[in-house]
């Protein structure tokens, strides 16, 4: 990791200033995109964000359709991240489930959901340099599933730990699971992160705070769902995802629409 002399206090001051500026803009009726791409508190974004606004394009046919995935692509066992090894992984077992919906509230059916995450000690199975937390031989932290007729996904896993990441001195990411989603159209492609309720690191994290509106930030936080907890087995977290962007519409109801 690159050496840095900036403290969390320096970063927090930058974060607060950008959020205040964004609030001012919103009051002037200029809502900015979420997250901001030009967000210097996340140091790696400085040379990796476009400086020009995106150009508007009327979507062509191919952009109004999404690639098709199905049960030949994904084994149902890939939704259980706790069975990769010969023993159970260390950590708090959790069940994560929710629905993928489009901007009109319609379920995104039969579509691919991919996740990846750190183990309970905050370590990824990845060659890149990381802090010396233990690897877990029974946990790789990669899962896939196909949404059902209601747009629902469901993963069995363990709760990831927070991890340090070198953005500034004592920088720690709040615990999160990375999610990759496809909607009903190319325009709806989404990669994001799911967080856990009441994480004390939220206020300190430049990646989470690159979304300058609290309401939009809240949309990335799962809800503890006791009905999803499995007796004597796991804690349940529910999280719905909305993927927006132009798509084609239907003149006939799809199978299952009533």
């Amino acid at each position: 990791m690159t050496a840095t002399t900036e403290t969390q206090a320096d970063l927090s001051a930058e974060i607060a200033k950008i959020e205040a500026d964004a609030e001012g803009q919103t009051q002037e009726g200029k809502p900015s995109r979420q997250p901001l791409l030009d967000y210097p508190p996340y140091r790696s974004s400085i040379l990796r964000h476009p400086t020009k606004d995106p150009r508007h394009a009327d979507p062509e046919t191919i952009e109004l359709w999404a690639p098709c995935f199905g049960h030949s692509d994904v084994d149902p066992l890939e939704a259980d991240l706790t069975i990769a090894g010969s023993n159970e992984p260390i950590g708090e077992r959790i069940t994560v489930s929710g629905r993928v919906l489009d901007g009109e509230g319609r379920p995104v059916r039969n579509q691919l959901v991919e996740i990846w995450q750190a183990n309970s000690a905050g370590r990824y199975v990845h060659k890149r340099e990381q802090h010396p937390a233990p690897l877990d031989p029974n946990f790789t932290g990669v899962g896939r599933c196909i949404t059902d007729a209601e747009g629902r996904y469901r993963f069995q896993t363990i709760k990831p730990g927070p991890y340090p990441w070198g953005n500034h001195i004592n920088a720690w990411r709040p615990a999160h699971i990375h999610f990759s989603l496809f909607g009903r159209a190319f325009t709806q492609r989404l990669i994001t992160q799911m967080y856990f309720p009441s994480d004390p690191l939220f206020a300190l994290d430049p990646i989470y705070q690159s979304i300058t509106s609290q309401k939009d930030r809240d949309a990335l936080v799962a809800r503890y769902d006791h009905d999803l907890s499995v007796p004597e087995y796991s804690m349940g977290y529910s999280w719905d995802i909305v993927v927006t962007g132009p798509s084609r519409t239907w003149t006939e109801p799809e199978e299952g629409d009533l």
Binding site: Q34, P35, Y42, S45, P59, L64, L101, D102, G103, E104, G105, E114, I115, W116, A118, Y124, V125, H126, K127, R128, T140, G141, V142, H178, L190, I191, T192, Q193, I207, Y208, S210, I211, K215, D216, R217, A219, L220, I241, V242, V243, T244, G245, P246, S247, R248, T249
Partner: peptide, 21 residues
């Protein structure tokens, strides 16, 4: 073309650790 009106779930960076996933 339908764009819909519900608020989108915001994106987040893919980060450095997607390479094995």
């Amino acid at each position: 073309i339908a764009s819909g009106s519900a608020s989108a779930t915001p994106g987040q960076t893919i980060g450095p650790f997607f390479g094995y996933a």
